[in-house]
Design a protein around this nucleic acid. Structure first.
Lengths: 189, 189
DNA sequence: CTAATTTGCCTATAGGCTGTAGGCAAATGC
DNA sequence: GCATTTGCCTACAGCCTATAGGCAAATTAG
């Protein structure tokens, strides 16, 4: 009986791919075991439980998304940075719907603190440096950007803009434009 | 053996309450049966399957939320209407997290068409009458408002603003203010 | 008012997922 | 080569969805 060569890392990787294929909430220990042609019970030597699997996938997605956003932001400022940030976010969600859903998993405080979550908020704040906002406006703006991008991507993924004109892409551009204008209005140079 | 007096309507009502108590995705046929002190199999005379239960709860929530928003909007216009709309939305999510989650369930096209979903987009458009937007800006604005309100409420519910100052309420007011300013900027009287 | 029918909830059952316990064989170390 | 460790296995228990068929309560008909 040849061994499958399981490990937490390989299981996480496969879980990440499974999430994109069948949806994050369809990721189960059973389905993952089938993918390795192994019995479900065997996975419990490598994973404490299914929650740990989901958390690992979420952490992977948060990290990957942060990397992408960081790459997109490199060398950009102002509206350019805002657009790059917005598009990195939306593109990731479109390319990897399961990973994006995973990234929204609610983590327990200590896991969240050790996650790439901090990088995300730091990068959002970095964008706002181009707009000269002072506290508490900066925090308000961070929350607003997070809300609008997440909200849009989430509604788009749910098919909310599918059967109506104009194209979702147009609204996205309009929205990012509008946010840029708004932030410039709020800036105190 | 005294009968429990089940019906699709009573089951839906109880499901709605269960959703707020334990979370929408913890609503199961089994849990609902326990609540009526009845075996799970008995519910299948009244419900086709668990999907139907969830859909019914979603439709109830959409309707109830639309009613609330309609009441909040009555007699208001402009920024006043925008604030009322925003608050009706957020308050509902805070008071009834399970119902709010249910309202976000993806419905199949024909069910969606027969739902209160249309009322929601019509009411959003009604608010924008106060800002003299022309197409396609109006559609873009409808999508943006939907995104930002849903996004904020969703992040707030996920605890995203819990451990940081200032209070989530302050950011909300700031955001609604900003959206009003933005829409006025975009208006073409 | 009783008898027939319908309706409502039951038990039994099957299949899927999570998770634990204990077993055997492959890999590793001495 | 032999002992130990490791990895995946079977078996099982508990909970969930869903179907089939049964019996008794409620309703309708004569």
């Amino acid at each position: 009986m040849v061994r499958a060569g399981l490990s937490p890392e390989r299981l996480t990787r496969a879980g990440v791919e499974l999430a994109d294929e069948v949806g994050f909430d369809q990721v189960t220990v059973s389905a993952l075991a089938r993918r390795f042609d192994v019995k479900a019970a065997s996975l419990y030597s490598h994973l404490k439980n299914s929650q740990e699997l989901k958390t690992r996938i979420a952490l992977f997605a948060l990290e990957e998304l942060a990397d992408r956003v960081a790459a997109a932001l490199a060398g950009r400022a102002g509206k350019d940075a805002l657009e790059a940030f917005a598009n990195a976010y939306r593109d990731y969600a479109r390319e990897h719907p399961g990973r994006y859903a995973a990234a929204r998993l609610r983590l327990d405080p200590e896991t969240a603190a050790a996650s790439a979550g901090m990088r995300h908020s730091q990068m959002t704040r970095a964008i706002l440096r181009g707009y000269d906002l002072t506290e508490p406006d900066q925090t308000h703006a961070v929350r607003m950007l997070g809300s609008v991008f997440h909200g849009y991507v989430s509604l788009e993924q749910a098919g909310g803009f599918e059967h109506s004109a104009p194209d979702a892409q147009e609204s996205w551009v309009w929205m990012v434009d509008s946010l840029d204008a708004l932030l410039r209005t709020r800036s105190t140079p």
